[in-house]
């Protein structure tokens, strides 16, 4: 991982020195274990701030929306897919970007680790595939693959789909993963069970909108939940309003979501709202053979009409 960091710094420094970009967007070391902070660097002498490890789960494409300057951006597989979506949706121009591709082997789910140790996490180090965690209860070692974010463990696009630089050779893509096991499990439930399931899932929501704001797709100037003329959704903690928010937000991501996991990662109360977006991803794949953000040449599934559309009503 430290080689990734070195390589990112080296590329960033070169891009800034050659004035090919005005800023490089990446991560800097956070103030707590397993937390890194998205940051920008404008001067070649500041590139030592940039780091890379398995705690860079925030999707950096989120920081590109409507920016005008020339930007170098560090991108793992999912970030790169959202960059593609951003370009297709005219939120940033391809010419503005120098994409520094990072082949990714998954990001760690801090909550999984926190749940299996005593006391709080004091320090964490990573060597090879091993994560060593120091806590009040002593030291414990984890196999990285066992503590990955759930979206990373089923990810089939670890390598950037679009890049100008690469910090390392591509990693092998995972092939034998069951991407939609969780969605299938919900589909197997009865109508009643499904209603109950989501009632429980969304109950802790505090409507802080971290999920929405961490999502690179959620860039509307005024979100439907904030709209007041007319007001579509109530602003209280009423379960129906909470459900409406999550349900409609998922829809706005239909055919666009890359399952980068930023929403779930950002949620302060640990709601897996990805179950909603994943269902739509699964439908897009099964109905239209579509996965979002794989290349710049094809229009999104819900953006085109084809004569063989699987929906009856449209013919």
């Amino acid at each position: 991982m430290s080689t990734y960091t070195d390589k990112i710094r080296e590329i960033a420094q070169r891009l800034l020195k050659e004035c090919r970009v005005e800023m490089v967007i990446g991560f800097r070391q956070g103030s707590m274990p397993m937390m890194n902070e998205p940051c920008f660097v404008r001067k070649p002498e500041e590139v030592d701030r940039l780091v890379w490890d398995s705690n860079c789960g925030i999707n950096l494409a989120n920081y590109l929306t409507n920016r005008k300057e020339k930007i170098g951006i560090v991108a793992k597989g999912c970030d790169s897919r959202n960059i593609v979506t951003h370009i297709l949706e005219n939120k940033v121009k391809r010419e503005q970007l120098v994409i520094i591709g990072v082949p990714c082997q998954g990001m760690i789910d801090k909550r999984k680790i926190a749940a299996s140790i005593q006391g709080e996490i004091l320090a964490v180090s990573e060597t090879g595939g091993q994560i060593k965690v120091k806590s009040a209860g002593g030291e414990k070692s984890f196999n990285k693959n066992e503590v990955l974010q759930q979206n990373c463990s089923v990810c089939v696009h670890r390598n950037p789909v679009i890049h100008d630089e690469m910090v390392a050779a591509p990693v092998a893509e995972q092939t034998d993963v069951d991407q939609y096991a969780d969605v299938n499990a919900i589909e197997a439930m009865s109508t009643e069970e499904r209603w109950e399931f989501f009632e429980k899932l969304l109950a802790p929501c505090i409507r802080c909108y971290a999920c929405r704001n961490a999502c690179p797709l959620c860039y509307c100037p005024t979100c439907f939940v904030d709209e007041s003329k007319p007001q579509w959704v109530g602003k209280s903690q009423d379960p129906m309003d909470v459900r409406t928010f999550h349900f409609l937000r998922a829809f706005h991501c239909a055919g666009r979501c890359t399952d980068c996991g930023a929403c779930e990662r950002a949620c302060p109360v640990g709601i897996n709202m990805r179950l909603l977006t994943k269902k739509l991803n699964k439908d897009c794949l099964e109905l239209y053979g579509w996965q979002a953000g794989l290349n710049l040449d094809s229009r999104p599934a819900l953006d085109v009409y084809k004569a063989n559309d699987p929906e009856d009503f449209i013919h």
Binding site: T191, F247, I314
Partner: peptide
Amino acid sequence: NLLVTMGIDPDRLHFS
């Protein structure tokens, strides 16, 4: 599909 997944009766929604 998503409405149904969330627990809404499929017969309540119709597209034409």
